[in-house]
Every structure is written in structure tokens, then in C-alpha cells.
Design a protein around this nucleic acid. Structure first.
Lengths: 222, 222
DNA sequence: TCATCTATGTGAAAGCCTTCACAAAATAGG
DNA sequence: CCTATTTTGTGAAGGCTTTCACATAGATGA
């Protein structure tokens, strides 16, 4: 296989592999900035704390991108991974809930840098509706279905309290959108063709808490 | 086994199990609010989109908390999971990088609610140093080693740009801290006894991008 | 008290993901 | 052109995680 095409793909690619593709992509950006033209699986692995075999196996699901004895062409591989991930384009995004977290994300440079463009804001607070955040006027969330339906927006970031997140998400689904990044600490119910990713920052601190309390060590010899 | 003790534990508990404990904990909070006194593995599973067998297996690593024919005692199980996770106490936390994301987290209620208390702020920007965020005065990051060493702070949230994150983390390690929640999009190098959790929000959007472009469906029949 | 029902706890099986190990392919240097 | 070296691509093995399936134990109701 020389080039990846989803329609030809039989095997399901695991979630872990896709997440690592993101890591390879950012590692390749770094390598490219340093002016290197080729990079080995060993070097990529070291940069992201993985094994060389893992890197090669992941990439092999999508094609043969490397040259034996030499490694992978940096820019070329970066472009190919971007194409696989679908980040070789601009994605227009709406954000609901312009609170602390929401307004931080409006200005979050990493989103913009990767082509994720927040173009619409919603809130239910009359004091916020009509106000301007980084050039975007906040709309009333009660119009969300009509404003998103048939628009150029394909993803929504949800930063509302848990108590109302399900209602907001029901509307997003009603508008026909299929990709949601959820910051509310609840399990959202959506149809099977809608994708939800959860960002649960408190959960990560809980994991750290567990690790400290149980005195784990990555290297522990038992 | 009736009660969980780490020192007696032989088998390593998987990361996924610990993450799910957080989910069970929040589900139990909801169930408790609704006034129920017992809950079955089936109900817990439904709330977090898992399987009943998964719930029972996870809990069984730590003890026998349920009653056959009846289910689990809600409050009791919640308290026991909190103890396992180490969230039956207050954790004092420092935050470095009072930018968009950093200052949003200072006001993030979910942290406070779970006992994660941000008590110290650092930045390298002279305009921010000395300013007040929610009652906390921002300190100069160049004093971070001395200010953290031997303090009551045990975790650090890092919200600085990728280009300086490694330097900040080196200082955190130097100060003897062992738990870091990292928002910078780089792989941090730390000794094996230091725990790092990465919060990579752009990566989650990249996953959504991949899912949309490749028209996956959780239920696809191949 | 006894029969029925419900839901846990857990070995075993199945499934999934990572690592191993090596043939193959290309480079590099003479 | 030939040999030594490097590094990929990949079946197979190994290891880890989830799911299955059922014995067990307590609840419930007559």
C-alpha cells in the first residue's frame, strides 16, 4: 500500500493510534523547524516517549512512508499525517458558554495554529449576549438550532455547566452537527453517529492524587 | 478482601481503571443527590456508558463493596472511592502561567469542588507579577524553586507556552514536587518518580476532525 | 421457612494493543 | 560491484483489558 484511503481500509484503526498520530504530527513540526529532512522511528519515539516499533506500526496502518536505512521524510510525512487527521484544512467551530473556560478558549492560540477557528459564540446570559469577544458577538443560545443548521460550522465546543449541557447538546444534534468537544463533567447522550470527546480537567488531577497517595512509581520494581 | 490497602496490593491497577473510578465517583454524587441509597452496577454502567461487568471488575480490585441481590450502598461507595483516589482531603496547588487558560483555571469551580485548591500563582511577565487573581498575588516564576520547596503545595498546573515549559518543570522537580498537570503541547522530560498528566485540547479536536473526515460511526457495520 | 429473584464477585475466554524479532530494502563507503 | 550498516515494514508472540457466564449470597414475599 502506498497511500492511505479510508474506503479501502478494512481494519478499524484504534483510538490510541489516532491520538499518537497527533503526537507524531507535532514532533514532526519540531523536527522540521530544526531543519532536518529525515527522521527515524527511533528519534520520533524518543521525542514522544514511545517505542520505535510503536511508531512504525502506527504509520504502517496508513501506508509505507519511510525509506529503509534512512528514515521518514519530515515534511512529507507531516503533510500526510495532516491529511489523515483531516487537519489540512480550516474547521469552523462554535463555542457555547462564554464563562471562564469558554472565553479562555476563544483566545487559545493552539486552536488557531492548528486550523481550528472559533467563529461563533453562544450564551444564555443576557449580560453576555451581544457582547464582543475577540471580534465575535455572542448570540443567544436559544437560537442555536437555526443558527447552526446548514452553516459552515461543523464542530462545537461545549463549556456550559453540567446541569444544562445535555439540553445544549440535544440542540446541537438537532442542528445536524456531529462533533462535540465537551468540557462539562457529565456523560452526554448522543446518537451513534455523533462524536463526543470529553475534556475533564478535574479527572486528571484526581489521577495525580491517586498516584501520589499510592506512591506509585513508573519504574517500581515489585 | 474487605477493604483496600495499597501495601497489600500485588497487581498493578491499570490507568483505565483509575480513570473510571473518577467516573463512578461523579455518578455516585448524582445518584446521591437523587436520594437513592443503593445503586446497581447496571445503573452505574448506564450513567457512564460502560458495561456492568466492567464496573464490577473495577471495583473488585479494591474490595467487595456491594450486596448480592441489592447493589452498592451509594454514600458508602462514594466515600470509599474518594479514599482510594486520595480526594478525601484538600490538595494545595500552584499554577504557573497566568495567561488565558491559566486565569480561567484559577476560577474553575470544578477544581475547588473536588478539593483542589489553587493557592499560589507564578508568571514571568512583570506586568502580571504582583497583580491579584481571586485573592492570590502573582509571584515571579524565578523564585519558584524556593517558594515551592518545603511548602504545603504538592501539585502544579503548568499553563506556560511550550517553549518554556521544560524549564519551568525542571524547577518544579528541583523543588521536590512530584505531580504536574501540563497544558503545554510538548512531551515533558521528568524523572521516573514524577507524575505528569497532559491536557492537550487541540489533540481532542484533531480526533474529532479525523472522525468526521473518515466518516466513522461507532456502530458501523463493516 | 422456603422458593424465587436479583445482582455481586470472579475465574476463564475473548479481544485488543504493544512489543519482538527479522527479512527486506535502501544507503554508504570503498 | 560488493560488503557492512542502517532502518523500515510486518507477521507472530506476548501481555494487558474487557467481556462472558455462572456460582454464590443476600433480598423479597408468601
Amino acid at each position: 500500500m502506498d497511500e492511505y484511503r479510508e474506503t479501502e481500509l478494512k481494519k478499524r484503526i484504534s483510538e490510541s493510534t489516532i491520538r499518537r498520530l497527533s503526537l507524531y504530527h507535532r514532533a514532526l513540526e519540531t523536527v522540521e523547524e530544526n531543519g532536518k529532512e529525515t527522521v527515524s522511528s527511533k528519534e520520533l519515539a524518543k521525542m514522544e516517549k514511545l517505542t520505535p516499533a510503536q511508531v512504525r506500526k502506527d504509520l504502517s496502518f496508513f501506508g509505507s512512508f519511510g525509506t529503509r536505512g534512512l528514515g521518514y521524510p519530515v515534511t512529507d510525512l507531516k503533510v500526510k499525517i495532516a491529511r489523515i487527521l483531516g487537519i489540512d484544512r480550516i474547521w469552523n467551530i462554535a463555542l457555547v458558554g462564554v464563562g471562564n473556560v469558554g472565553s479562555a478558549l476563544v483566545s487559545y492560540k493552539e486552536f488557531a495554529r492548528q486550523g481550528f477557528k472559533i467563529v461563533k459564540l453562544f450564551d444564555n446570559d443576557q449580560r453576555k449576549i451581544g457582547s464582543n469577544h475577540k471580534g465575535i458577538v455572542v448570540s443567544d443560545v436559544k437560537n442555536i438550532v437555526s443558527e447552526l443548521s446548514g452553516s459552515e460550522i461543523e464542530m462545537v465546543v461545549v463549556c456550559v455547566p453540567g446541569s444544562v449541557a445535555q439540553f445544549v447538546v440535544d440542540d446541537i444534534v438537532k442542528a445536524g452537527l456531529r462533533a462535540i468537544l465537551n468540557f462539562a463533567p457529565i456523560n452526554l447522550k448522543v446518537p451513534d453517529n455523533v462524536f463526543v470527546r470529553n475534556e475533564n480537567m478535574a479527572m486528571e488531577l484526581e489521577y495525580l492524587s491517586y498516584a501520589l497517595v499510592n506512591n506509585h512509581s513508573k519504574n517500581r520494581v515489585k
